[in-house]
C-alpha cells in the first residue's frame, strides 16, 4: 500500500480502472467506444489546461486567469473567422494562440518583473481579460452562424478513430513531457519551485522561469480557446466561467504540490481524466449533477491528505537500533510503536 501511494500515478490509474469497471458493469453503455471517445474529446481541453497550470504551479505560482484567457483568445479567433472568412484555418488558430501567449506574457511580466504575488496578478487579469471581451463585443456574442464552417468543423473531424482535439491533446502532452523531463529549462522549473535560493546559486533565474511558465500557460489557453469556441459554436464573455478551478483541481488530484517543485505530466493527465470520468459517469449513474461539485471537492481533499502523508519527512535516525535497521524496515515501525 505504501509503495503504491509512493507511485501515486499508479495508484490513481488503479482507482480509475476500478471505477470504470464498476460503472461499466452497472451500465455497459459507459464503456462503449463512442462514449469513451466523447468523454476524451470533452476532456481534451482540461488535459491541456491542467498541464499548463502545472507548469505554473511548479514555480510556486498559480494562474487564475487561464479560463478568462481562453475566453478572450477564443473570442478573437471567432472574430477573425467572422470578419476574414477567407483566411486559412491555421491562421485563425494562430491568432488565438498569439493572443493567449500575449496575455500569458502580461501575467509573467507582472509576476516576474514587478514580483507581485501570482494569485493577486492573475485575479486581476482574470477580471481584465473577461472585461475586454465585453468591450470588444459591445455586450454581444459571436454565434455559430457567424463563424466559418471550416472553423467549426475542424474539432469534429476524426483521424484514425480519434477526434482532432484528442490528437492535439496527445501532441501537447508529449511536448510537455519532453520539455519538463529532457530540457534544461524544464528542469529549471522544478528547481525554482523546489528551492528558489538553491536554484539561484546554480545560475537559474527565478524571474525568467516564471515568465516562461505564465507564457506557456497563456499560449496553451489560447489554443484551448479556439477549440472551445469552435466546438460549442458560441463566443461571449462568460464561456468557461470558473473553469480555472476545475483545472487547478485536476492538478491537485494528479499530485501536483501547491507548494511548488512537485508534479508529473502523467499524474496531471490522470487527475484531469479522473474529473472527466466523474463528469460523464454521474448522468449514467443517474446522480444529480449538483453532486458533481461535492464529489470533485471530496476527491481533492482526499488527494491532499494522501499528498501530505507522502510528503511527510521521515523521522531522524538517532537511536542506534534504528540506524542499524534502516528507514524502510518494517521492524523499525514496530520498534517505534
Amino acid at each position: 500500500m505504501t509503495s503504491l501511494i509512493k507511485s501515486r500515478e499508479l495508484f490513481l490509474a488503479l482507482i480509475l480502472v476500478i471505477g470504470v469497471i464498476l460503472i461499466g458493469s452497472y451500465d455497459p453503455v459507459f464503456v462503449r467506444w463512442q462514449n469513451i471517445s466523447d468523454m476524451l474529446t470533452e476532456t481534451s481541453v482540461l488535459f491541456m489546461l491542467a498541464l499548463a497550470q502545472m507548469v505554473v504551479i511548479l514555480t510556486r505560482g498559480i494562474d487564475l486567469s487561464v479560463a478568462a484567457n481562453l475566453a478572450l483568445s477564443g473570442f478573437v479567433a471567432a472574430l477573425v473567422s467572422q470578419y476574414y472568412p477567407g483566411v486559412p484555418l491555421a491562421l485563425m488558430i494562430a491568432a488565438g494562440v498569439a493572443v493567449g501567449l500575449l496575455l500569458g506574457m502580461i501575467n509573467g511580466a507582472l509576476v516576474a518583473l514587478l514580483t507581485i504575488p501570482p494569485i493577486v496578478v492573475t485575479l486581476g487579469t482574470l477580471a481584465v481579460y473577461r472585461g475586454m471581451i465585453i468591450i470588444l463585443a459591445g455586450g454581444d456574442q459571436v454565434n455559430a452562424s457567424e463563424m466559418g464552417d471550416v472553423f467549426q468543423a475542424f474539432p469534429k473531424q476524426t483521424f484514425l478513430g480519434l477526434t482532432t482535439p484528442i490528437w492535439i491533446a496527445i501532441g501537447v502532452s508529449i511536448l510537455f513531457w519532453l520539455f519538463l523531463n529532457f530540457t534544461r529549462t524544464g528542469r529549471g522549473l522544478y528547481a525554482v519551485g523546489g528551492n528558489p535560493l538553491a536554484a539561484r546559486y546554480c545560475g537559474i533565474s527565478q524571474g525568467r522561469q516564471e515568465f516562461l511558465a505564465y507564457s506557456i500557460a497563456g499560449a496553451v489557453s489560447g489554443l484551448c480557446g479556439y477549440l472551445w469556441v469552435a466546438r460549442y459554436g458560441v463566443a461571449y464573455s462568460e464561456i468557461a466561467s470558473g473553469y480555472e478551478l476545475t483545472v487547478i483541481a485536476a492538478c491537485v488530484i494528479g499530485g501536483v504540490s501547491i507548494g511548488g517543485g512537485v508534479g508529473t505530466v502523467a499524474g496531471t493527465l490522470l487527475g484531469a481524466l479522473f474529473l472527466g470520468i466523474v463528469n460523464t459517469a454521474l448522468p449514467v449513474l443517474q446522480i444529480s449533477p449538483f453532486w458533481q461539485m461535492a464529489i470533485a471537492g471530496a476527491v481533492i481533499l482526499a488527494a491532499v491528505v494522501i499528498n501530505a502523508r507522502a510528503e511527510h519527512r521521515p523521522d531522524k535516525l538517532i537511536l542506534p537500533e534504528a540506524r542499524r535497521l534502516g528507514r524502510d524496515s518494517g521492524l523499525l515501525r514496530r520498534v517505534k510503536a
Binding site: Y190, A198, A199, Y201, C202
Partner: peptide, 21 residues
C-alpha cells in the same frame, strides 16, 4: 539545506543541476 539542496528532486537531478549544459 536552504541554499543548496532541492529536497523535492532526486539525487541525479540535484547533482546535475548546476552543470546541465
Amino acid at each position: 539545506q536552504d541554499q543548496g539542496a532541492i529536497l523535492s528532486l532526486g539525487i541525479r537531478e540535484n547533482v546535475t543541476l548546476a552543470s546541465l549544459g
